[in-house]
Write a protein that binds this DNA or RNA. Structure first.
Lengths: 223, 223
DNA sequence: TAGATTGTTAATCGATTAACAATC
DNA sequence: TAGATTGTTAATCGATTAACAATC
């Protein structure tokens, strides 16, 4: 199955992670522009609106296999299609959500996640009070049903929005049952086999950067 | 006020952002270790548990001004104190939350945010149905009261958990009223004066990385 | 044609990793 | 003392930025 890309994308070549993280930003921006009825857009314009280097825009977009025209730029519709296809946002990647607390519930009712390729098909919790609820069309099931459903439905993605102290334990079980990628919203580092993809999304990492920049600014400039 | 650091931290020297983002991870890990009654810990042990290079651990921790002892390592309590002080996690940095939807509500009831230096003192929404509610001890006020309270209370941090299409508009107003840092949970790029600190926390950036790694893995190895 | 823009290759910049001296 | 670990300086690696040729 290697090298069978229909579009001429960069295939399995290693793409810089910063590039991958910028693509959704371009995508959202481009959808806004398209809704205004515009047909084409150039890298310098994108760079100006999103305050980033135009050559970086060119490089970032090129990974999706898009071809632009000198003096014209890129076709916006084609560009959106390419980014979505490249990132897998127009597929439905089935996922289970584990931990139906506040953050979990927020994610469940975030219909937009589906527009970004993540299709949460069920949520799990150990709290009997939460089991049986419906959150944004998704049922909350008891955690005891997790093993059976993961194995039967061949779900590959798990979203962890549960307390940190049980995260490692559940993660190990999920891996045993066949989960291949974990989106980790807990503050704990998950020590799992190297082939398991763990995406750590920590609020606190962002708080750290924000506070440090703020205090730095406050100490640097006279108020 | 420049250079008056009591602890010998790296002060206002430029610290790599990746380092800042790793510090909360160390912090959480160290608190777990301390609760087990351990007194000291060495960089190689941390590196092994958190799967990162021990020399990087040494370099990361050194920015907080901690001094370790050869053959012993670092005093865990002192290390925790230094990281918290360095990041500003033991101060109460007042913040307003704007948009009391699902994600906003999740953040409000996330008491732990306070332990990481962010003290949300009020939430705002334009939905009358939400105004007057209490979410985790924080009142939801009508958006019309925002201007008055931002200016009167000298709040410097705003957390944006509102719909993307109004984000730029509200952000510009907030800046006019004196907000210095914005934690942006919307998918839009906020074009604001350069001196305003904008911390963009996008779910989608993480989805992009996760899906790409997953599909890459699925295409690389024979199943 | 002239000029703006793409797309690629080279140079720079910054972060990570390696090497090694200092030290308890 | 011997050896593990810190802490610093140098080398490597990777991403960003700059330069420039190709092209519509």
């Amino acid at each position: 199955m290697v090298g069978h890309n229909i579009h001429k994308t960069n295939g399995n070549k290693k793409i810089p992670e910063p590039t991958l993280k910028r693509l959704p930003l371009y995508l959202h921006y481009l959808k806004g522009i398209m809704n205004k009825g515009q047909m084409n857009i150039s890298a310098p314009v994108i760079g100006n609106d999103l305050r980033c280097d135009p050559t970086q825009v060119v490089k970032d977009l090129s990974v999706t296999g898009i071809k632009g025209k000198p003096r014209v730029g890129y076709n916006i519709y084609e560009l959106i299609q390419n980014i979505e296809t490249y990132l897998g946002f127009n597929k439905n990647n089935d996922a289970f959500l584990i931990g139906a607390g506040n953050l979990g519930t927020a994610l469940l009712s975030y219909e937009q996640l589906q527009g970004f390729g993540i299709n949460i098909i069920a949520a799990f919790d150990n709290d009997p009070a939460k089991v049986g609820q419906q959150q944004g069309h998704i049922n909350v099931l008891h955690i005891s049903k997790l093993q059976d459903l993961v194995t039967r439905l061949h779900v590959h993605i798990a979203i962890l929005t549960l307390p940190g102290d049980v995260a490692q334990d559940i993660a190990e079980k999920l891996v045993k049952w066949g989960i291949k990628a974990i989106w980790n919203f807990t503050p704990v580092y998950l020590k799992l086999p190297q082939h398991i993809i763990v995406q750590h999304t920590s609020m606190y990492a962002n708080v750290a950067v924000l506070l440090k920049k703020l205090h730095h600014a406050e100490n640097t400039y006279i108020e």
